[in-house]
Computed example of a mutant assay.
Amino acid sequence: MKFHGALTAMVTPFKNGAFDEESYRALLDWQIEQGINGVVPCGTTGESATLSHEEHKRVVRTCVEHVAGRIPVLAGAGSNNTKEAIELAKDARDAGADGLLLITPYYNKPTQEGLYQHFKAISAEVDLPFIVYNVPGRTGVNLLPETLARMAKDIPQVQGTKDATANLHQVSDIAEYCGKDFMLISGDDFTVLPLLAVGGCGVISVVSNIAPAWMAGMCKAFAEGDIEKAREYHFKLQPLSRACFLETNPAPVKTALSMMGKIPMEFRLPMVPLQPENEAKLRKILTDSGII
Rank of each mutant, 00 (worst) to 15 (best):
I71F: 09
L144Y: 13
F19G: 01
D91P: 01
L28A: 11
A95E: 03
M271Q: 09
V141K: 02
Q112H: 00
A26H: 10
K284Q: 15
A95L: 04
S289T: 12
L51M: 14
D226R: 01
W30L: 10
E21Y: 07
A221W: 02
P264N: 02
P72R: 06
A149S: 13
G290S: 12
K83A: 15
C219N: 07
E33F: 00
S172K: 07
E228Y: 12
A97N: 04
V158N: 08
K281H: 09
S172P: 01
H56T: 12
A68L: 05
P250M: 09
V126D: 11
D226E: 11
Y133S: 02
P250C: 09
V171C: 06
E84W: 14
W214I: 09
P13K: 03
L286N: 04
N167G: 06
K180S: 14
E277Q: 14
L100A: 06
L237H: 03
Q31M: 13
L269E: 14
G140Y: 01
P194G: 13
E55Y: 11
P145D: 10
A280L: 06
G35M: 07
I122T: 03
A121L: 10
S205H: 04
E146I: 14
K83D: 15
E55P: 05
L7N: 00
M10Q: 11
G96C: 07
L27Y: 06
W214C: 03
G179I: 04
I71E: 05
M218E: 09
R138P: 04
D127T: 13
G43T: 01
N108V: 06
F235T: 02
S79Q: 08
F119G: 03
P250E: 11
L196N: 08
P13T: 11
K281I: 14
D98Y: 11
T45V: 10
K220P: 03
I131C: 08
F267P: 03
C201W: 06
K180V: 05
L128T: 07
E65C: 12
F119I: 07
V207Y: 02
L282C: 08
A6V: 03
T45C: 03
Y24G: 04
G225Y: 05
T104N: 00
G202R: 00
F182S: 06
A211S: 14
A152W: 11
T8C: 13
A26E: 12
R25V: 07
A124R: 15
A243F: 14
T104W: 00
N81T: 13
P41E: 06
A230S: 13
G179T: 03
N249F: 12
C244F: 10
A243W: 13
A197H: 05
M10H: 09
N108Y: 05
Y24L: 13
E266G: 02
S79N: 10
V171P: 02
E22N: 12
I174G: 00
I36F: 01
V59D: 07
Y177V: 04
